[in-house]
């Protein structure tokens, strides 16, 4: 999106909007009844025991909460620096989330005792299963994309059948089909290879379209220029077309990898000890399920953030190359 150089007034400076915002927030708070909340307890000297303050107390606490929230939003709107504004909002949302988790009364002792194992066993397995799968999926995708653009009916039929089938089935079902189905024809595969095959085939099908779009976006003049020099198809693909389409392919492929990282949790059903499996099992003995689930959630989120960072680095690198 290209920002216009002329912007409207900041919406938070419009009294009408502030009034509207306040009313909405007030109604929300009133419905959720904040009289038991921190605000309610802070107002205890004025209102008395929050449990007994009734309708009046509910009104006051709701309006106080709404005032605080609107003031907070106003304060944020006065921050002149875009970056600083983003950081402030991020921090506030993060604190909100963490306090939400904190309110579950979690055993941090238990989390501390398990987190190292979750990282070394769980994250490690999740990452290597996903990494191998995305590499295989990329190879499948190149071949699939070429086959889909081919004038050979046979190749096109196989490729389109493949993408249609593997995009049409839930990944979980593919995992089961491969793990339970292959032995029926005499091949017994272990859980990890079965998971890798399922993830590769499924994502290969999605990425076929990404690669196809990337290849199609290259100007046909590049094909003609290469052909006029006497290059053969494989050479054109390898040296001319793919290097130019990679900057277009990298961002969506990064997204696929991030999605795969989370979809790889589905292989936990066949007993692979990756992050999701550990999240579901580690807390079982002492019934600390919530702890493990939240820890795993945080770990997934952190992994994703790191990967997003890496992805934006790579994207920037290619952008620089293009503008050379």
């Amino acid at each position: 999106m290209i920002q216009d150089t002329v912007t409207e007034d900041i919406i938070m400076r419009k009294p009408k909007f502030i009034a509207f915002l306040f009313t909405t927030i007030f109604i929300c708070f009133f419905i959720f009844d904040p009289s038991q909340s921190i605000v309610g307890h802070l107002l205890e000297p004025a209102l008395g025991d929050p449990e007994k303050s009734g309708f009046y107390g509910r009104c006051v606490t709701a309006s106080m909460s709404a005032v605080l929230l609107v003031l907070n939003l106003l304060a944020i709107s006065w921050i002149p620096n875009f970056r600083l504004q983003v950081i402030t909002v991020w921090l506030q949302l993060l604190i909100l989330f963490l306090s939400f988790f904190y309110s579950f009364d979690l055993s941090f002792e238990f989390i501390r005792s398990k987190i190292w194992f979750m990282v070394t066993q769980g994250i490690f397995t999740t990452l290597y299963v996903s990494a191998i799968s995305i590499v295989i999926a990329s190879f499948i995708a190149i071949i699939g994309a070429v086959a889909k653009m081919s004038s050979n009916g046979f190749a096109y039929a196989i490729a389109s059948f493949y993408t249609s089938f593997f995009r049409g089935l839930p990944l979980l079902m593919q995992v089961y089909l491969i793990y339970l189905g292959f032995p029926q024809i005499g091949y017994v595969i272990d859980a990890v290879p079965a998971g890798i095959i399922a993830l590769s085939l499924c994502y290969g099908a999605y990425m076929t379209e990404i690669f196809r779009a990337g290849i199609m976006s290259i100007d046909h003049g590049q094909w003609e220029g290469s052909r006029a020099l006497g290059f053969k198809f494989g050479l054109i693909m390898r040296k001319i077309i793919l290097p130019q389409s990679i900057p277009l392919i990298i961002p969506p492929t990064g997204n696929q990898f991030i999605a795969m990282l989370k979809d790889s949790s589905l292989v936990s059903v066949i007993g692979v000890w990756e992050l999701m499996f550990l999240a579901r099992t580690l807390g079982n003995k002492t019934f600390n399920h919530m702890e493990m689930l939240i820890t795993a959630a945080m770990l997934y989120w952190m992994m994703t953030m790191v990967l997003e960072l890496i992805q934006s680095r790579i994207e920037r690198k290619y952008k620089k190359q293009q503008s050379r």
Binding site: D219, G221, Q222, E224, G225, S226, R227, A228, L229, G230, F231, K232, I240, P243, Q244, Q321
Partner: peptide, 20 residues
Amino acid sequence: IDKVRSEVGMVFQHFNLFPH
């Protein structure tokens, strides 16, 4: 055909140089 093409030079309206 590749051999024939390699012996016939061609210059295009839009150059078709390899930008990378």
